[in-house]
Each structure stands twice: as C-alpha cells, then as structure tokens.
C-alpha cells in the first residue's frame, strides 16, 4: 500500500451530481423500494408489538409496541444504509462499473465514496421517516421531540454506511456480505436494545453492547419518542459520529488501494 492511500479525504461538492444520479435511479424503483423498507419493519413491529406485547404488561415503562417502535426505527435505518452500502454499492463499484465511468470525469474517488455514504444515509432518512409516520399514525408518540428521530435516522445511516463500505471495499463478491450481516448486523439487532432492554443481558454482553453503534442510536431514539431529552445525548451522538468518520476514512483508504490495482 502506498503512502498516498493514507492521505486525508479531500471533500468537495462534486459528490452532489453523483448523489443526484442515485436519486434518479431510486425514483424509478421507488415503489418496491418503499414497500421493502417500510413494510418489512412495520410488519415485525406490529406482529411482535401486538402479539408478543399482549403477553407483556409493559417494558421500560411503556407498552411493548411503543418500546419496540423506537428500536424498529433504529434498526430499519441501520438496515437501509447497510444494504445500500454493501449490495448496491458493490454493484455500482464492481458489477455495473458505474464508479469507473464517474472516475473518468473530473470527479475524484473521495467524492464518489462520500456520495455513497450520503446516499445510503439518505435511504436511512427515508426509511426512518416512514417508520416515524407509522409511529404517529398508531398514536405511539405525541411529542414534537420525536421529530429529532429524523436527523437521528440520518446519523444512523451515516455511521452504518461508513462501516458497511469497509466491507464493500474488501469484498471479492456478493457472498462475502453474508459474513457481515450474520456476524455484525444480526447480533447488533439482538444485543442493542431493539427488542428488549440491554440491562437484561449478562454483564459481558452489556459491555459489548455499549461499544456497538446501534445501542447508542436506540438510547437516543427511545427517550425522543417519549418526549424526553436523552441522557448523555452528546456522548451518544459522538459515538455515532466517530463510527462515521472512522468508517469513512478506513473505507476510503481501502478503496484507494483496491482501485489502484
């Protein structure tokens, strides 16, 4: 690996035409995309929330479906960004050679990677906003503070897009992503307080959960939905931003190496 690969990212507004390209593609497939990103988490939320919830008097001081709703917003934002950064990102980089076409123009790789992260985060934003609308319709939140869950969905998207792109940069083929989803995303869903409080876990797993980004997202989302300012909000935001910046830099270095061959 050459020293040039480690240079600081050079960020410019040239990412924007690429973001617009992704947006135009998405508009053409918007209907199935919205269905996939909304129907799936909402079905889980309703099924588990009302089905399992009828067996539980309350969880964390609220109805189970309300408890689950905040977690659902977080994990569906996580999934949207992850699928976009891994599968769609890999398609654009490797299979369709969209990146190659773009890199022949006066646009740098740094701009391309930035556009991928911002686009995947945009998908999270849309997915989070859609879940929030369902939350409102079901009357699970009555606080304007819940509007903060929209920028939170964007932040979750940034963090998971940035981490996910590390995998995209390393992937030889699509199969490779199964490791990430099985070993990272699925445990994250189960350990980070989406379906039950982290405090129910053995202490070792609680310590692990505290290091995972989704835990911090859930710790922000649940109070916001219930109209409270989250305790240690700045720390949680800081963790998610750290994941974003570290993931962006590491993935960029790996993409520079991959595409210089």
């Amino acid at each position: 690996m050459s020293m040039g690969h480690f240079a600081a990212p050079r960020l410019t507004l040239r990412f924007f035409p690429i973001w617009r390209r992704h947006w135009l593609v998405w508009r053409k497939v918007a209907a199935p995309s919205i269905l996939g990103h909304l129907a799936d988490p909402v079905i889980y939320m309703l099924g588990l929330g009302y089905g399992l919830g009828s067996l539980l008097p309350e969880m964390g001081g609220m109805s189970y479906i309300a408890f689950l709703a905040a977690g659902t917003l977080c994990y569906s934002s996580m999934n949207s960004a992850s699928f976009e950064a891994l599968y769609s990102g890999f398609a654009r980089m490797h299979e369709q050679r969209t990146w190659e076409a773009i890199l022949n123009t006066p646009v740098a790789l740094d701009d391309v990677v930035l556009s991928e992260i911002l686009w995947a985060a945009t998908k999270s934003l849309m997915s989070g906003a859609a879940v929030l609308v369902v939350i409102w319709i079901l009357g699970l939140s009555h606080s304007l503070l819940s509007l903060w869950m929209i920028p939170l969905a964007l932040l979750i998207g940034l963090a998971f897009a940035a981490i996910g792109l590390i995998m995209t940069a390393l992937a030889p083929a699509y199969d490779f992503f199964m490791y990430y989803f099985t070993l990272v995303i699925t445990p994250m869903m189960l350990l980070c307080g989406v379906f039950f409080p982290v405090s129910q876990l053995p202490e070792a797993l609680q310590a692990l959960a505290a290091a995972l980004p989704l835990t911090h997202a859930v710790d922000l989302a649940r109070p916001l939905m219930n109209g409270a300012v989250p305790p240690q909000a700045l720390m949680h935001v800081g963790v998610l931003l750290t994941y974003t910046l570290a993931g962006f830099y590491i993935s960029l270095v790996l993409f520079r190496r991959r595409l210089s061959r």
Binding site: R21, V25, K28, V29, Q96, R97, T98, E100, A101, N104
Partner: peptide
Amino acid sequence: PQMDNLDPD
C-alpha cells in the same frame, strides 16, 4: 472504456 459502463437504469 473497454467495457460498457453505461447506467442500465
């Protein structure tokens, strides 16, 4: 380029 990389969508 050698291989087509048009946007198929």
